[in-house]
């Protein structure tokens, strides 16, 4: 599928060089964000397991105790949606949102850096807008007391708030990465590790975790 970029992420874990350390106050923020992202990934993973449990319980309760199953599906939906949006920043921190790297090998160094910065800024614009509208949606749902249209009918501020917080964290992650790129160069912004992409394997026959040449003037 986007095809098992799972395998791509998997291999990235195996061959990945240690993260370069971002210096200065930005580094403190960066490490705090990494810590938060890790906590979210762990909680998100637990949420997925709980969702599995809830759906399995649904099967049991219907067949063994002949009970109605009306809250299970939606609980699972909330857990999975929440896990997805909240971990979006953690995935971005490792440049895990798949991009097509078809032209990186064709462009001169400087143009390539400019292209990556533009790509990040456009992504930032989109996720910031999405985050903003998510907060508006949350506000509406809260004020109107909107509920989901199911028998169980839980309030919609629950998933909306997860979406709003998740997209805000993602926005923040992009801001952080753009600042790092501008101040300290591409490698610290994670560009050096941007290994995923459908053309990445062809543009240059370089090790997968470092498909793009890192400029010599990368300051530590």
């Amino acid at each position: 599928m986007t095809q098992g970029f799972d395998a791509a992420t998997a291999s990235a874990e195996n061959v990945r060089a240690p993260e370069p350390r971002v210096p200065g106050p930005l580094g403190v923020v960066d490490r705090a964000m990494n810590g938060l992202n890790h906590v979210i990934l762990v909680l998100g993973g637990i949420a997925l397991v709980v969702a599995c449990g809830v759906l399995s319980y649904s099967v049991l309760s219907r067949h063994v105790w002949n009970e109605a199953t009306d809250w299970q599906d939606e609980t699972a939906v909330f857990l999975i949606v929440g896990a997805t949006f909240l971990s979006a920043a953690g995935v971005q921190a490792r440049r895990g949102h798949v991009a097509i790297e078809a032209v990186s090998g064709l462009l001169p160094e400087r143009a390539n850096r400019a292209r990556l910065l533009v790509a990040d800024v456009i992504s930032l614009a989109f996720v910031a807008f999405f985050a903003w509208k998510s907060w508006m949606l949350l506000h509406e749902a809260w004020v109107d007391g909107q509920t989901s249209q199911s028998t169980w009918g839980p309030p919609l501020w629950i998933p909306y708030s997860l979406m709003a917080v998740g997209m805000s964290l993602l926005t923040f992650q992009f801001v952080l990465q753009i600042l790092e790129a501008v101040i300290y160069g591409p490698k610290l912004a994670g560009w050096g590790a941007q290994k995923i992409g459908m053309g990445a394997d062809l543009t240059k026959n370089l090790p997968a975790d470092d498909a793009r040449p890192v400029p010599a003037d990368t300051r530590p």
Binding site: R62, N66, A68, D73, S150
Partner: peptide, 14 residues
């Protein structure tokens, strides 16, 4: 509908 059916003893599912 589900509220009524459950009261009547059915197991409703979504």
């Amino acid at each position: 509908m589900d509220l009524m059916l459950k009261q009547a003893g059915a197991a409703t599912l979504s």
